[in-house]
Every structure is written in C-alpha cells, then in structure tokens.
Design a protein around this nucleic acid. Structure first.
Lengths: 337, 337
DNA sequence: GAAGCTTATGTTACCCGTGCCATTCGTAAC
DNA sequence: GTTACGAATGGCACGGGTAACATAAGCTTC
C-alpha cells in the first residue's frame, strides 16, 4: 500500500481539554461518564468535543487498559451460507448495541491448525471475547490456553475447559422432525445427517434415534452429508433406490434440496412417494417445489444470545429460542398400500 | 523459564530484545522483515521470540504509526445471504493473506444515517481501508469526509469522490441473459429487476434494455423486487396473469425462486410455458426444480479483488472476473403456436 | 589513507487515553 | 475553630511499538 493511510490528524483529548479549559483527564472522565464531573464542566467539555469534531480513539485504551471493545467471531467458509450470515448479523447487532465491534476470522476448512491460527490472530488483535461458530474437531493445548485467557462462547456446542456453551437444543429439533413424520403415519424414518464433527449434527441424529426408539422402531443406518446440497443429492440417489423409504429427516434445508432433486430424478415424488422434513428454515425453503416442511432455527437470535452470554448482558444465561416446526408441503401421509 | 511466561504479563519486544541481547528496535525490524538485519542477529531474535512465546501487539502500532492492519467491511443485513457470505469470505481470505484483519459493520437496512454510523464506527476503529458492499443511496458530507480520509472501495458500483469502484460488468450479465432467451426463439423478454438504488440492478436492467433494443424489440415495463424470494413471488403473480409472457429475465436467483413458485401456482410451467434466466448462480440454483439457467457471479473473487484494489496488491487494477452463462433447465424454446 | 557510501544497530521522543495519586475547596461533624 | 471527608479536578507516569535520527563499523574508490 503505497499511499499510507494518512488520516488528517484527528484532535485528541488534549485538544478538547485545551478548548474547554480543563485537563485531559477531565475530558476522559466526562466522555466515560464518570460520576465526579460537574454538570457545568461536562457541558463545556461536550461542547468543545462537538466543536472540534473529536473522535474517540480506542487504541491507547487498549494499550493502557487492555480492553479493545472488539469481539472475535470464528466462522467456517464453506457451506451453510444462510446460517453463517444470520449468525453474523445477530452477533454484530448485539455487539454493536453494547458498543463492541466484531472482527471475523473465517476458516477455509475444518482443520486444527487453521483453527489455532485464527484464534491466535484474534488473540493478537486483543479481542475481549471470542465466539466460535464452528465445531472444535479436537482441542489443542494452545486452543485451551487462548480460551482460558479470553472469554469464549461456542455456539455449536463443542467445548474447551474455558469456553461457555450456547446451543439450541438440537435433540429437540431431531425429535420434532421425526415425530412429525411418524404422526403422519410413516412406519419408518430415514435420516441424512450432517458431518459427525458437528455437535448439531450429532444431536439431531440422536434426537431422531430417540424418537424412533420411543416409538419402538429400529432406526435404519443414517447417511451422512456435509451440509451441501450436492452431498444431499448423493445420499438422495441412494435413498431413491430403496423402495421402502417413505420418509426422510434431512439435517439441513440445503441438503434437502439435493435429496429432493435426486428423488425426483428417480421418479419418486415429494411428498406423494416420500415425505421430507429438514432443519433451518432458510429463506428459500418456502419457495422451492415442494415448499419444505422444516424445523426453524433462529440463527440471528443465537448470534445475539452468544454475545449476551459473553458480555454477561443476559444474566438469565441460556435463554435459548425454541426450535419450531414449520409445516409446508414436503410431508404427507404415506401412500396406503 | 522466566517470569514472563507466567499468566497475565505477555512478553514485550523489550523482553525479547533483552533475551536476544539487542535493542527493541532491532526486534521490531526483524519481526517486520526489514532488510537491514544481519542473518545471525535475525536468528537470535527469532529464537528469543519463540522461546518467550512472544506475541505481537498491534495496539501500539496503531498509536504510533496510525496503521491498524484492519479493513472494514460494510454489509447489508437482509437478503442476498449467499452473495454476502461469499463476498465476506473472499474479503477475509485476501485480507488475511496480506496480514490484515477484517472488521464488519452490518446495516439493518439501507439508510443514510445507519450508513454514516457504520462508517464512523469503522473510522473510529482506525481501519486502514473500507469495502462497501451495499449501495450508497445518497452520499452525505460526512460520508465524503470519511471516504476521502480512508481508502475506500465500493463493490456495488456507487461512488463518492474518494472511493474507487469495483464492479463486475452488470450490463454484460443483463445482455447475456436476455440474448440467451432471444436465441432460444422468444420474441419478447420480461424483466424482474432488483431495487433501483442498487447499481447492479440498474446495470442489469440496462443490459436487458440494450439487448432488446439491438434486436429491435420494445422493452416491456420492468417489474421491481427487493432481491428477496418473496418479492419475486409477488412479481411472478403479476407476470403469470399475462398470457404473452414466455420469457423472463430475473435479476437474482433468489427472486427467481419466487417467480417460479408463482408461475407454478398459476399453472404455468417452467420452462414449457415460460423460460427463466436469472443471475448469481447460488449453490441452490442447481438443486431446485427446474434447475436454474443463470449468469454466474463470482462473489468470492470480487471480494478478494476489492481487497487487492484497496491494498494496491493488484497493479492491473480492475481484473474483473467475467460473468458466465450457466445453462440448466429453466429455459427452452417457446411453445410453437 | 581520507572521503564517501552502505549496512547494521542503538537512542530517544512520541502516539494518546487511563490508572493512580495529589491537590483544592466546600461542608459536615465534633 | 479544628478535624474529617467527599467531590471536583489536575499532574504525571505508563503501556509497547515505531519514526526519525544518531552512531558505528565495513567497504569502495581514487
């Protein structure tokens, strides 16, 4: 970068202090709403600051007090575009509300070294807290170190010693989806799961198993995708070849798109031949054919909740938004035989 | 094992300097890859840094040199989830490559005041550059001030005096899509455009008009959505009632989902009755029914290109990735009458 | 061998809020 | 009247890199 980012020199607290006829310290106190400032003095300071277009500068504070008012957010680059965006928006909104900025670190793939690197990078930036929205495949010593030193929340349910955990109850989502299919009259429910490293995926699968077990049904083997529609398509091709399959619980909407495409190509229509329930309720779920019956996840809120948990804003702790079933047209009673 | 490794105190450059028997300045030079450092000295410094687990601290640099090695990214919260994620990923990857961090600011909606607030916030953080990925509805003085002081790139084509502009040629996308429909034999092409504030939307519309004009066809009035599938659905309901409509160019995949749903509900099938071409090639475009013919946009690359432009990494300037037509099954020849 | 240049390294001031302590003043308590 | 105390404010050192300048060698060149 040839052109150094030469900002015209901004006024400092000292400038404001001079203009207001007080000391820099008083300016600092005024701007931080310290109680011991005379109302008249405060007014003079604020006027001067306004006059000079004074902009607060966080860097020295980070130097002297160690607080940056920045939160770090770790995301996975591939897949789950919708949920990623929504979580980000929720985090950023809640953080902004509390006067914090958000610095992001995206992982090209799930890899311990990359994760370490991202955490180090955030740590180097002096972030006051970290939100990890990807699964921790394996926790290294260095990761432990960082998450012990910096308050951390993981929103996918994996944990280190230090990190607190926030998660929508994914068992519930799995049970809800499966039960809906059983209620419709299906005798068996198949499952296309997410990657086993993701706790969300594991919990949804467990919820599915529990629900089947409660109904006295032996669960068939689960198929595993990677959240992408393409992986759903591949697993769907397999399921399409099994005549007994009449109901499938797919662990994400995006994979469900792929499953439906595969079924259609094999001449099995949804929901007449096969019913599908998935999870997420992405925006497009209502606009595909057939519109997806799905368990809604409120990603925006969980992002916001993660921030609240991190900053201690929300003393209630885990006020998790419940997953709710949205019934559309991808589910129906099985064809009577 | 020194006391510096105890919790709390991070070692500073001075600590490293002491351990390596050099001055702090030499440590600084070594870590910044300054050329004027003896190989032997460099080794000693790096060894000492390694030994002490030295972590670089960016705050003082921001103080003394005004450089934060952080870039700001302004995004719109709603809609366009896919493109937003992809742009973010591209920006973050390219920035990370160059040693920069990315700080995000999401706008709840397109609003001048919110935009100003976001820019101010980024400016306060001392970002070295800003990437604006939303349209500037109207440019205020304060926005001008900030974008003059801080290098800025807008990726949607809108501009301030200071900002440089990076944009995929959206005229071309509009022409390509429209021409494809004309080539298939359609005599008229309708259009569902994006919001007029977005330069992308305007350019796509212009491309469509130009293409029709070149073929000697009077363009019908364009309908306008807001990028959301829901808005596509509403406009689709209107188009479905017009018997002569046989071909529609939709300004985004997500709106196309809505248009197709509306057409289907009115008994008009795609592509037998109506052909659809859209823009973006989001991941799900290939997995809906019918799979969308669409003009691919490489958001990831444009995010990366924005960073390159900002940092001057890419001297070629605007090395824009071309938009390319992906033909799937939402287009066909019109029914012969 | 002295001037002139390059390379390697050190010294010092500075960036700008904030923590800590000192100071002043007014007032309540004894 | 003197002590005690809180409120309001100022003074100053500090944090950890970095720019700018200074210094000390090593090497050319005539």
């Amino acid at each position: 970068m040839t052109e150094a980012t030469m900002r015209g020199k901004q006024p400092s607290m000292a400038d404001v202090a001079r203009a207001a006829g007080v000391s820099a310290q008083t300016v600092s106190r005024t701007l931080r709403d310290s109680p011991n400032v005379n109302a008249e003095t405060r007014r003079r300071v604020l006027d001067a600051a306004e006059q000079l277009r004074y902009r607060y500068n966080g860097a020295p504070r980070l130097l002297s007090s160690g607080r940056s008012f920045t939160l770090g957010l770790v995301l996975l680059q591939a897949g789950g575009y919708y949920s990623r965006s929504a979580v980000t928006a929720g985090v950023e909104a809640a953080a902004g509300q509390a006067g914090y900025s958000v610095s992001i670190a995206t992982l090209a793939e799930l890899d311990t070294a990359l994760m370490e690197k991202s955490l180090l990078k955030l740590s180097d930036q002096g972030v006051d807290g970290i939100i990890i929205a990807v699964p921790l495949i394996s926790v290294t010593q260095r990761m432990e170190d960082i998450t012990r030193d910096i308050p951390t929340v993981t929103v996918d349910g994996s944990r280190t010693t230090g990190a607190r955990v926030l998660g929508i109850d994914q068992h519930e989502a799995g049970r809800t989806a499966t039960q809906h299919l059983l209620d419709a009259g299906h005798r068996q429910v198949w499952h296309v799961a997410g990657p086993d490293e993701w706790i969300e995926a594991r919990q949804r699968r467990q919820g599915w198993q529990e629900c089947l077990a409660a109904a006295g049904i032996d669960a068939p083997p689960a198929l595993e995708g990677d959240w992408s529609p393409e992986s759903g398509y591949r697993q769907g091709q397999i399921l399409a070849m099994i005549p007994e399959v009449t109901a499938i619980f797919v662990a994400s909407d995006e994979m469900a798109f792929g499953v439906i495409k595969a079924l259609r190509e094999r001449g099995r229509s949804v929901p007449q031949d096969v019913s599908i329930v998935s999870v997420d309720d992405i925006e497009l779920a209502a606009y595909c054919h057939p519109p997806l019956t799905t368990v809604r996840q409120d990603f925006y809120s969980s992002g916001a909740a993660a921030v609240a948990l991190l900053l201690g804003t929300d003393p209630d702790g885990e006020s998790l938004t419940q997953a709710s079933l949205i019934v559309r047209e991808s589910t129906a009673a099985p064809r009577s035989r």
